[in-house]
Nucleic acid binder design. Structure first.
Lengths: 116, 116
DNA sequence: TCTCTGTCTCGACGTTCGTCGAAACAGAGA
DNA sequence: TCTCTGTTTCGACGAACGTCGAGACAGAGA
């Protein structure tokens, strides 16, 4: 992993987001946004996302995330990568530890899409 | 299928939904809400959800949904069942046709959870 | 009653997912 | 340089998923 790991999906590229209730989501938009919902579609990842997004200082160390679950380190790492690749979080290594922070813009996009 | 098909998951039972960014989502809440995100995590289902939720009159016939995709009837039916079981939509047969309508309350819950 | 059409269920298939243990990698400190 | 710890990658496994074709079911109309 490089020092600064960005998302593999650029969600700012998504033609963005009149509420799903107001206007049909076109196929291309669905293809871009569905992976983000999919990433949130696992209970462990939903909790991870929340722990990261609600963290004081805006970031959390993996070392604080892992012990909160009854899962091995590699499994947590795998879920974090899924969140990263979905563009929901960013990771940065500083010294020994790796810190994750949320990308609020995409959360806003998803919330806007679902708003009624 | 009975005349009136309800969701298998009662989302009103979920201890509901301070924003994920404000407060850690507890495990039980994550277990209840993650399946809804998962259901939206497929491009076909995201479009189906949008077509249903944005329909005039608040409902759509399956016969109008199916031809919008390059997929077989059984496949669309399977995706609709997934949305139903996630509590996102309701189905009702009236005569020959089956109509789907959105459940706005759960969309509101999901949007609230993601709001920043 | 029979037939026709719309929708769902069933069974099968290849693919993806969630999990683990083992091993590799990165940085800190001796 | 060596070692120790935190994190990720790799390879494997069973379970779940998305899709299909074939067939079953439901209601309308003759």
């Amino acid at each position: 992993m490089s020092k600064q790991t960005g998302p593999l999906v650029d969600l700012t590229a998504a033609p963005c987001c009149p509420p799903l209730v107001q206007q049909r989501v076109p196929g291309e938009t669905a293809a871009v946004l569905a992976p983000a919902f999919k990433a949130l579609g696992d209970p462990v990842r939903l909790q991870l996302m929340s722990m990261i997004a609600s963290a004081e200082g805006g970031e959390v160390c993996v070392c604080d995330l892992t012990p909160a679950f009854d899962l091995t380190g590699p499994t947590i790492s795998h879920h974090l990568r899924t969140l990263r690749e979905a563009g929901l979080v960013d990771a940065e290594r500083r010294g020994t530890w790796v810190y994750y922070r949320a990308r609020p813009q995409i959360l806003r996009q998803l919330a806007a899409l679902l708003s009624v």
